[in-house]
Every structure is written in C-alpha cells, then in structure tokens.
Amino acid sequence: MIDYGLDLSAVPRDHALPDLVAEGDELDALVSAAPDWSRPTPAAGWTIAHQIAHLAAADANVLTAIRTPGAFDPEPKDADADAAAGAAGPRSALLDRWRTGRAELAAALRDVPLDHAFPWFGSQATAVLMVPLRLMETWAHGQDVFDALGVAHRPTGRLRHVAALGVAGLGLSFYAAQSPMPAEEVRVELTGPGGELWTWGPEAAAQRVRGSALDFCLRVTHRRSRAETGLTAVGGDADKWLDIARVFL
C-alpha cells in the first residue's frame, strides 16, 4: 500500500468522488471551448492536447488496475511518449476518449470496495487514496491548461483534497531530496478559498507552514516555485520542506 502517512478516509468517498467529477468537468468545459489544442503549456514540450492525452492515459491505467489487475504493468510509463502518442490523433477522438474514460473511472471508483487494494506503480492503492490522487492530477494538469490559455483558475473547496495529499507528502518530499526526515511534526495552516482555515498537525508544533491553500497546492504540485507563492515557514524543517515539497515522485 502507498503510505502517505495521513488518514485520507476522513473525507468520505461520497464527498470526494463528486469533487473529482467536478474537477474533470471544469477542465472539460475549458478545453472544449479552446480553439487551438496545439498551444504550448508551461510543461516543456507539452501542448494542451498533450495534457489531455496524459490525463486520459492515466485514467485508463487506473481502470486497468481495478478491473484487470493481472494485466496492469507496474513499470513506470514514459509520460512524454504516451502524451505525444495521444496528442497526435484527432482532437475529437481524444476528447471522446478522455470523457469516456473519466466516466468509467468514476463508476469504478464508486463501486470498488473501500478496502480493496489494487496494483499501482511501485505499490498498491485503494479508492480512498486514488480518488484524491486523480483529483490532484486533474487539477494540476488543468492548471497548466489554464495558464496556457491565460485564464484565471478559480480556487474551490476541492483544493482541500490536493492540500491533504501535499501535507501527507512531507515524507515523500524529504525522501526524494535524500534529506533526513524531520525530527518534529509540522503544523500546516492554510486559508481556503472561502477564508476558512484548514489545519493539519499539532497545534503546539514549533515547525509551521502558513499561507493560502492555493499557493500550497501550486507549490506541492510544482506549478509554482516557492518564490512565486506567499507561503511562510517557521523552523528549519518547515523551511526546508517548502523548498523541496512535492506530492509525486
């Protein structure tokens, strides 16, 4: 099982899954109205079509893992090659494939038992983890598309799922950076889109990260550098974390 060090079951699937669907629908409305899918996005070498092709391929991988786990290939894929292959075909076919895959994946994640583990890259996963993971990736790649089109990406309460994965990714961040794990827990205090406060970690912790939920999500998904956010840190470990923060390898 992938160990993100956080109890993601605190958000029931019947709340998280509609958020995943809504995130995909929002991006769908944006790209459906975009006249040119060949426009470059902030990801080097990736157009809007590459971004949608990548999301479609990732959804298909999850479906395979759930439906036919024996056919799932646990070796990491070449994301650039997969995206290029998907982007090479007709836009209408890619859009249809992405839409169909999103709908089938939502149904599969709704129906699979919560404690049913299925294979994933390097480990295993469950619907409890996969729903926010798919939402995070849809939001992050969607951000690339919003940026490419010069359209403001309005933050919503769905960011809480992304932020929770970001907090859970503290250990992953230090592991990937080959840095020692923090000896103390870190308190994270984020301001949500509606002005609400989202918190994780002990209230009395000396190590702290503060800022907007949007900035934190942009940082952990590597859509913005630390300097481009208003995030602040108290304590050496918290400060280091903001430099190396990530939510995926």
Rank of each mutant, 00 (worst) to 15 (best):
I2N: 13
G5C: 01
L8M: 06
A10E: 13
A10N: 09
V11S: 11
P12D: 07
P12R: 11
R13Y: 15
A16Y: 13
A16K: 08
P18W: 02
L20D: 04
L20G: 06
E23H: 10
E26Y: 15
D28A: 12
A29S: 14
V31W: 15
S32T: 11
A33V: 07
R39H: 12
T41Q: 15
A43Q: 15
A53D: 14
A56P: 06
A57P: 13
D59T: 12
D59P: 02
N61A: 14
V62N: 00
V62D: 00
I66Q: 08
I66Y: 06
R67C: 07
R67Q: 10
P69M: 07
P74Q: 13
E75V: 12
E75Q: 14
D78A: 10
A79I: 14
D82S: 15
A84F: 00
A85L: 07
G86Y: 02
A87V: 01
A87L: 03
A88K: 05
A93R: 05
L95M: 14
G101H: 00
A103F: 00
A106V: 03
A106E: 05
A107P: 03
A108I: 02
D111H: 04
D115Q: 09
D115A: 15
D115P: 03
H116P: 08
S123C: 11
S123Y: 12
A127G: 12
A127F: 12
V128M: 07
V128W: 06
V128E: 10
L133Y: 14
L133D: 08
L135W: 10
L135T: 14
E137C: 06
T138H: 04
H141P: 01
H141N: 01
H141S: 01
D144G: 04
V145D: 02
V151H: 06
A152G: 09
R154F: 03
G157R: 10
G157N: 12
G157Q: 06
H161G: 10
V162Y: 00
L165S: 02
A168G: 10
A168F: 01
Q178L: 08
A183C: 13
E184S: 13
V186C: 03
R187T: 00
R187F: 11
V188C: 04
L190S: 00
P193C: 01
G194H: 12
E196Y: 01
L197K: 08
A204N: 11
A206L: 05
Q207M: 03
L218C: 05
E228I: 10
L231C: 03
A233M: 02
G235F: 03
G235R: 01
A238L: 01
D239E: 14
W241P: 02
W241V: 09
D243T: 11
V247T: 15
